[in-house]
Amino acid sequence: MISNPNMDIDNLELETRNLKPPTARLARVDARGLDYRELNRRVDELLASGAGEIEIRGVHGQRYIASRVRRPVSFRIHGTPGNDLAAFSDGVRLEVFGDAQDGVGNTMNSGEIIIHGRAGDIVGMGMRGGRIFIRDEVGYRTAIHMKEYGEQRPVIVIGVMGQDFLGEYMAGGVVVILNLPPRNPKSFSRPPAFIGTGIHGGKIFFRGKLEPYQTGKEVGFDRPDEKEMEFLSGIIRDYSNYFGLNLAQVVPDDFIKLYPKHLRPYGRLYAY
């Protein structure tokens, strides 16, 4: 018979109720040679058997890791996770020891991702909650269409810098750019441009200076206020702790704030 999702929407809940007795809290997976479906299925099994922490080694591009995990589980990922890492995820804490690819935290709802390396394009696309810390640089269109809602206010922290179109369409949340020296200057052969183009919500804190042409015309500039300075201190502290770095030279005073000049950037585009 062809299964009919009309009929068995509640099955998922049932499955999680049929838990096996808990085994070891920490579970290990060797991802070498596994495709993503197999890997994610194993993760499901481990979670179902009560694992509270999962270490995956030998990751080589498998997609969608932790994307359907919806409880506060810790992941430690060694290798290079594939695209859409933790897409749609809700509440996981995920640490990557290596670089990540495109689509980290795509439409993520809550949780925390810490990347001991760089990440590719569209980090935190459509992200609604949680935090992403990236030690090094990120690719194009970081935080594109990131948004916030109620208590959910996503934060992306970038150690180095993002390439062009950072914060495009940004509708909420916070991006912090520490502007540390790049791992490889070849990723920034020209200063990143189109920062915050189309921004209509949220804020970007950038350490250092930006030329006006580097940002979208919708962007306003200001200094962080006191509360924001405090927030930045916290972020710098967390960043230093997460990556074991001493960042004495990075102080909240060095940041500028980019904010949307209008909530409705395109209000005057149309003839009604």
Binding site: V59, H60, G61, G79, T80, Q101, G120, N184
Partner: peptide, 16 residues
């Protein structure tokens, strides 16, 4: 990137 790292885990340089 994963494909590069798969065949050469220790890169001297990496960029995008």
């Amino acid at each position: 990137e994963a494909s590069i790292r798969l065949v050469c885990p220790e890169l001297d340089e990496f960029w995008s």
